[in-house]
Nucleic acid binder design. Sequence first.
DNA 1: GTCTATAGGCTGATAGAC
DNA 2: GTCTATCAGCCTATAGAC
Lengths: 218, 218
Amino acid sequence: MASTTRSKPRPARDSEATRQALLDAGAALFAEHGFDGVSVDEIARRARVNKAMISYHFGGKEGLYGAILAAAAVPAAERLRELAAADIPPVEALTRYVETFVELTEKNPHFPPMILRELMGGGRLFDEAFFPHVLAIFGSIRMIIARGIALKVFRPVDPLVTHLSVVGSLLFFLVTEGVRERMEKKGILPAPRPLPKDFVAHLKDVTIRGLLAEPPRN
Amino acid sequence: MASTTRSKPRPARDSEATRQALLDAGAALFAEHGFDGVSVDEIARRARVNKAMISYHFGGKEGLYGAILAAAAVPAAERLRELAAADIPPVEALTRYVETFVELTEKNPHFPPMILRELMGGGRLFDEAFFPHVLAIFGSIRMIIARGIALKVFRPVDPLVTHLSVVGSLLFFLVTEGVRERMEKKGILPAPRPLPKDFVAHLKDVTIRGLLAEPPRN
DNA sequence: GTCTATAGGCTGATAGAC
DNA sequence: GTCTATCAGCCTATAGAC
């Protein structure tokens, strides 16, 4: 795994670096413009790599796209699934879910736009190995909410609807950071640009208040 | 406005119908696949119209796209702006905002995906006549929230962050109806598919609880 | 207003040299 | 593993007949 040690005769110079450059360039471009909005020439240029390498390493444009999606979805699904399975009080679990989600997207800011595009579009990769991971990511928070209701910590809301509203507002916030940044530069943002941590704090505050069976003392 | 009366000599057979067919077909396809994911051939085929008509009536693919976006954004912005300007108690205004938003998208289900794609993407049409309307749509709810805070009906939350979370979850719900429909058909949806009215009810319930200065009696 | 035919550019993929 | 050269296919736009 630690790549070529530079002493053996045959193996190549830098195969892993090429792969990674393509994954990085592709993620940024696909997130911003969608699968159809990006050409393999652009990706190769940005990665400073020959475009034939996309076919060589990933079997083509679709293969690269799928690899990028999986590289982000698999670890995210794993961490969030663990969190949902752990025996943590519902309020804390919900909080940690949101924090973990944001933390994951700080490592990989291109994941939210890509997954949202997949949810909107016909669903290019929705049958393959990818779909179960999406289910895990969304299912985890749904389970946390359902558990909170079962324990009577939360009011008897609909878990499916509730998890959509929490994850939805979170995803929306994350995918629109770019617009706000651009608006701020133009000076047309009506208030200081909120940081992810501000949004997380708000979401925790308001949704917990909205869900709790026993309203907090003000 | 009532189109050709079929008696005069020169005017053409059905120009308005052609325009409308292109607007309808384009809206459906752009919403599902994005600007780059759709070819003018597909649009023309779906509209049962010759593709040269796109250039003739709208000056090209981009022109059609802009016309579709404006046709939905302009009336929406107008109605929501009125609502924000009216002197209505904050809780009711917030409720009506969400209801109006959903009602507007029932007339035009392709608007939420299109606007979300615009917000994510580099922003193809973001400088033109279109941008002010987006500002009005989002600004209206921000104003309602700010008013609620000023009147001490709502807790002193950040209006910018708060309106993002409300509109965000709403938009997310609307643009993911397609996936849930497909999942339901496959039998992999973990609960009965929530209708827009269920979601609206939930959003009203939970956000109002989360925002109110005086928590409601349970 | 509508349609056919076509131009000209760009797309993704690959064969074959190194 | 990498790169160059090249291909066939699709794309949008338009000139010109009706």
